[in-house]
């Protein structure tokens, strides 16, 4: 009556896990339709936050791209001559934070303004060009953060010929703030939808435990531990999770595919190109990992609650 625990423990442990795994797969495949529906529900639930996440990721990249093209304009004092303006350009080009600087004459400025604002008539009526010389500056990449830009602006204001500086970055900053806020929203959203996935799996597994009530009672009767009873259900939960995760992944990919063309069209209007980014390998693995873990936790709670509710 000695318990034989010496015999290749690990083989039999592995075999038992495998058996439990296969068992739960068998059970799920016996009701393929129900399983599929459940997995689709989980998939859609996971796809929603994933899609938002990807959307944000793309907006992030876009906004970085936009930020990189932030320009600064220096308006020189009204009496500045062309020579003086060019001297300032020379000086600016030596600045390490400035990639490019070029002078804009009052005439050029006027033409540009006419182009942009469509106020041709009014300006034509002006007899004297009121615009001063200006210098357009393209800061280097290093100077692209809003703080660096502000500092650069302050330095440039010290130059005697400079009347004022103007940064085209306010709206970019607003966008950044909005993105930060959206990140939080996506996290909250992800949290709640993960909870939903957990509850879906929990519900399915609870139904399964009820369905297998007699079986569980028998196993308890002949000395099955809680871990032993839990095992096939945990596998089932994990299978739900991973199938849901795969469905979510595919849905998101489909969405991207569907959006790529209109986005190409939109971006081409701005004479630019933009390739939508999807989930990279690490993120995909994370998605699958999270869905498996959610399935595991959901079923763990379901079985534990069931076991506590029955006294045998």
């Amino acid at each position: 009556m000695k318990r034989q625990s010496q015999h290749n423990y690990f083989t039999s442990y592995g075999v038992r896990h495998l058996q439990a795994g296969l068992n739960s797969l068998g059970q799920l495949s016996r009701a393929p339709f129900t399983t599929l529906i459940t997995c689709i529900v989980i998939g859609v639930t996971l796809a929603l936050p994933m899609a938002l996440f990807i959307l944000l990721k793309n907006v992030d990249v876009l906004s970085q791209k936009l930020q990189q093209s932030t320009q600064m304009t220096l308006y020189l004092k009204a009496e500045t001559t062309k020579a003086q303006a060019q001297a300032v350009v020379q000086q600016l080009q030596e600045n390490a934070l400035i990639k490019e600087a070029h002078a804009i004459s009052p005439d050029e400025g006027l033409t540009e303004l006419q182009h942009q604002a469509g106020v041709t008539n009014m300006l034509v009526e002006l007899q004297n060009n009121p615009l001063p010389w200006a210098i357009a500056i393209q800061p280097t990449r290093k100077a692209q953060s809003s703080q660096a830009l502000a500092e650069l602006g302050n330095t440039l204001k010290q130059i005697p010929a400079v009347e004022a500086t103007q940064l085209d970055s306010l709206w970019v900053e607003r966008l950044c703030a909005l993105i930060t806020l959206s990140h939080r929203l996506v996290y909250a959203f992800t949290f709640f939808l993960s909870l939903t996935v957990l509850l879906i799996v929990n519900n399915c597994i609870r139904a399964a435990t009820q369905f297998h009530q007699k079986e569980i009672d028998i196993i308890k009767l002949i000395g099955g531990t809680r871990a032993f009873i839990r095992r096939p259900f945990l596998y089932a939960g994990m299978v739900y999770g991973i199938l849901g995760g795969i469905i979510a992944w595919q849905l998101v990919d489909l969405l991207l595919l569907w959006l790529q063309n209109p986005i190409n069209h939109l971006i081409s209007l701005y004479n630019d190109t933009f390739e939508l980014i999807g989930l990279n390998v690490t993120e995909t693995l994370y998605l699958l990992l999270i869905s498996v873990v959610l399935g595991w936790i959901g079923s763990w709670f379901a079985v534990t609650r069931y076991l506590q509710s029955r006294r045998i």
Binding site: Q4, S5, S12
Partner: peptide
């Protein structure tokens, strides 16, 4: 267990106790 064979039913306590196949 109605969905398990006679053999599997009888073997269950040993499976649970972790004996080799």
């Amino acid at each position: 267990l109605m969905d398990k064979s006679v053999f599997d039913n009888v073997a269950l306590p040993l499976v649970i106790a972790g004996y080799s196949y």
